[in-house]
Computed example of a mutant assay.
Amino acid sequence: MNVSDSAQTNTSTKFFPRISVVIPIYNGESDLSELISCLLAQTYPKKLVEYLLVDNNSSDRTFSFLETAAEHCPIEIHPLSENQIQSSYAARNKGIQAAGGEFIVFTDADCRPQPRWLELLIQPFMRSEVAIVAGEITAFPEKNLLAKFADRQETLSQKHTLTHPFCAYGQTANLAIRRTILEKSGLFRPYLTTGGDADICWRILKQNLGTLEFVSDAIVRHRHRTSIRELASQWRRYGRSNRYLHELHGVDLMREIPNKEYYYRLTRWLLKEIPQQSIKILTTKSSVVDLLNTPIGLFTARIRYSGQKEAKLPENAKIIQCLDS
């Protein structure tokens, strides 16, 4: 289960196999124009890429937008629908089943792949032992305090998932998998609603089907959450994911912060950190983000634990879909 950084891969070898990019979309009408622009800007040979954009039962005009894009864009776009199962993993499976590429690449509708994303991401597959390649996820510059906090923590970065104490994995916002590997491991669990990226990577790596490589220069950009409600939803989902992966793979559960420790850290923040950070802010040696680090961190930890505690893995989420021959 090797994980290495292939950022310096020499692309002069011009390894350009046929690839399929699968993107699940739910109510993504407002994101699609920018997304398509990013796909148009890819340096990968256009005739060797197909984009399978899968509408997951949206209530907006996502699918009609996809049909229009497929008709008028100079890249190969296939609009698909997954209306039976409300899950991004079911939508990804729909795209994989329709894909004709040797390698399947994943990102999301609200991501913004940078121009050399595909070109760089695919290069490690030149080595036959490579099963999975993950690229980096970086944030857009934000003025919002919550977004700045998340950026300081590098919340989106693959470096957290690639160093997961149980086993490394890559997030589907920027991930590629060899098609022949999916024939052996199976696809995503279609009824799983979170944690599916870790699950599929772990199934591949634990079965010793190949290695995982990281390409730090293959970048997609993503936006941080900018409201308390969005932040809470994000960290509650992280908690649910942890519970599901505990039941599927035996991952350690996150511990709850005892009330005594919680209030001690909060009091310490009020009595010690606020005065110290306030002085640093006045002397421009610190920022408001540093001042709020402790309370936001405590908030997200509690929300994540709450999500973990409340979650229960549905029985049908254990189903692994197979790749049709």
Rank of each mutant, 00 (worst) to 15 (best):
R221P: 00
G186Y: 05
I137H: 01
L212W: 05
N144W: 09
I132G: 02
V130I: 15
A301G: 04
T284E: 14
K94I: 03
I77N: 01
A109P: 01
E183S: 12
E129H: 12
I319D: 12
L282K: 13
Q277W: 02
K206I: 02
E29V: 07
R61S: 14
I36L: 15
M126F: 06
W202D: 01
F140R: 06
L39F: 14
D324R: 09
R268Q: 11
K285M: 09
T107D: 09
S286M: 09
I177G: 01
T284W: 12
S241T: 08
F103Y: 15
K47C: 00
S81N: 09
G101Q: 04
D31W: 12
K159W: 10
Q8T: 14
A176S: 12
M126A: 10
S287H: 09
S4A: 11
P190G: 04
I19G: 01
L253A: 11
L187H: 03
G186M: 08
A317D: 07
R225Q: 14
A139Y: 03
S33M: 08
Q321M: 10
E183G: 01
W269G: 09
L298H: 10
C38G: 03
K309P: 06
T283D: 10
K272W: 11
A98W: 01
T294D: 06
S59C: 05
E76Q: 13
T107G: 07
V215K: 02
E82P: 03
S185A: 15
F140E: 11
N174H: 09
I219K: 11
I122H: 05
V105K: 03
H164F: 14
C38N: 13
L175F: 07
T284V: 08
I104W: 00
